[in-house]
Write a protein that binds this DNA or RNA. Sequence first.
DNA 1: TTCTGGCACTCGTGTGTTCAGAGTGCCAAG
DNA 2: CTTGGCACTCTGAACACACGAGTGCCAGAA
Lengths: 344, 344
Amino acid sequence: MAGEVRQLDDRKLAVLRAIVQDYVGTEEPVGSKALVERHNLGVSPATVRNDMAALEEEGYIHQPHTSAGRIPTDKGYRLFVDKLAEVKPMSAPERRAIRHFLDGAVDLDDVVARTVRLLAQLTRQVAVVQYPSLTRSTVRHIELVALAPAKVMLVLITNTGRVEQRMVDCPGTVGETVLADLRAALNTRAAGRRLPEVPGLLEELPAMFEQADRPTVSTVLATLFETLAEQNEERIMLAGTANLTRFGHDFPLTIQPVLEALEEQVILLRLLGETNDAAMTVRIGRENAYEGLISTSVVSVGYGSGDESVAKLGVIGPTRMDYPGTMGAVRAVARYVGQILAES
Amino acid sequence: MAGEVRQLDDRKLAVLRAIVQDYVGTEEPVGSKALVERHNLGVSPATVRNDMAALEEEGYIHQPHTSAGRIPTDKGYRLFVDKLAEVKPMSAPERRAIRHFLDGAVDLDDVVARTVRLLAQLTRQVAVVQYPSLTRSTVRHIELVALAPAKVMLVLITNTGRVEQRMVDCPGTVGETVLADLRAALNTRAAGRRLPEVPGLLEELPAMFEQADRPTVSTVLATLFETLAEQNEERIMLAGTANLTRFGHDFPLTIQPVLEALEEQVILLRLLGETNDAAMTVRIGRENAYEGLISTSVVSVGYGSGDESVAKLGVIGPTRMDYPGTMGAVRAVARYVGQILAES
DNA sequence: TTCTGGCACTCGTGTGTTCAGAGTGCCAAG
DNA sequence: CTTGGCACTCTGAACACACGAGTGCCAGAA
């Protein structure tokens, strides 16, 4: 008896899988007859129809109108991704191509730029790559440059190669020796430390300088802390928006809301922010919080130079997307970017 | 007789102007009757028809099909822009809003980001802003930072606030005093100079150092020259692509080729590169070299911190655009960005 | 029970036709 | 040179209609 039930369920799942695959391929609602023709489920269309009715009853598929085929719902895609799909690994030549393409990068900007283009090409969708985040990275070096008697430039270099600079207007003239002392003190304490730790390590620093220099030291420190804390400076790079036009049919009205969402860095950051660090995250249709993206799916994953993730990257496409292929590409690219970052 | 001819021509021009204005407004081919109704040219539709026939004969307007109204050709828009249109100045509240919006910027990135968003909103089209170019700007400061015994970071700061950094792998260990001497020498010679001049000013620099240090000096100089010369590092920021969808009708097939063109920094740079520094440039339809943009027009102008232009900005939209309004917005924004840059 | 073939029914899509309206070109008269 | 009149053209909307893909249901077979 249990065996019977399982058997039934298995076939329903097979039907759902077949529907998703066909619909992704043909872009048209898929009917019972076409299904039995293309996949060799060993049953008749009538049987499949019964299964389809059950699947529809449970909300996995849906009919645009009577006498049309079925299309998967968000819930259907979700089940497909969770239970029915296997991430499709990249082929050896593809992996070589990825490696080769990323190896040519000369600096961090270039790595990110190449990654995002590669991902867009590979998946033929919209790709998003977040710059390695300041929060997770460590200080490689802090530099102070006197540009004018009371004007100092502060440069922060992280282990991921990211460079942030800020102008500091000091309360008074800054002596070269004070600057040198401060520079040395900063680097001794902060180098190699994670960015969020740094403020704590520099607390008694002003006390080490002469009374007269303390305002300057404090001002510089304040700017440094600001730079460290500035989460909103997180940057994102985008590519492949033109690919959206390939999916005219998939967007109920127009692609406009999607394009609008893609222009809002804040939205993209939040989108990637919802990614689990380790595992790949797939957000399907209405699972996305943002209204403009309810007919898209987002596949994202963290990447990092070592074993832990310093930033995230992903792909945005219509809910009707090739999930196994997209997930494979995203995973592979994330892995290789991680390697590249670790090497540099 | 000559007076007669001029009279005729004036009316034809008026008709063309009216056609352009109406078509831009209504998005539909405009016929003789509607024309006399909306504009008070003191003549009958029949007369206007004759003029239209003449205008069509000369290639300024064009009929989609018999028994349809006329629409301007690229040549017609060209004439309109050159002879018939006056740049529409921004209103006082608009100018205040621009000023206010740009004043909040905290650094160069922010200035560019705000500018491009502002321009996109103001014109409701796609806006492009080029970062102040390295070529035209001057050196404010050059900094050298030892990161490891044989690894030096080179930082170049320009008067426009732009910062470029490069890692330099030196042939051997670099002494701190050599680095200090080199830093001093570089800044003495290069500070305040235009970037392209700099290499010429540093030619005999290696000769001033001890034999042992010359390889290091040369390596650093080589990297510096590379950075200076790297035209292709010119960056561009884009906003308002979602506005393209408002013009579905204006793009023969899809907006895809336009989106593709917009993703190619190289193409955008070339596009802006064709701008005259001083005057505003308008490229209409097929005047654009790039195939993907033949149904768009580009309005661009240089902007700069002083009296001369250090970079360019512009707007891309359908050929059917409000030229006077767009040109007014572009000019106003360019002017204010210039002021902001001059102040900082 | 579960599957299957048959059958009636639904409904979107594509096609053909018609019709009104907008717009034109031309011509003869003012 | 301008104008009113007129015949002509062409698009786009509205409508009818047939086709076909697809469904749901039911009775009978495994």
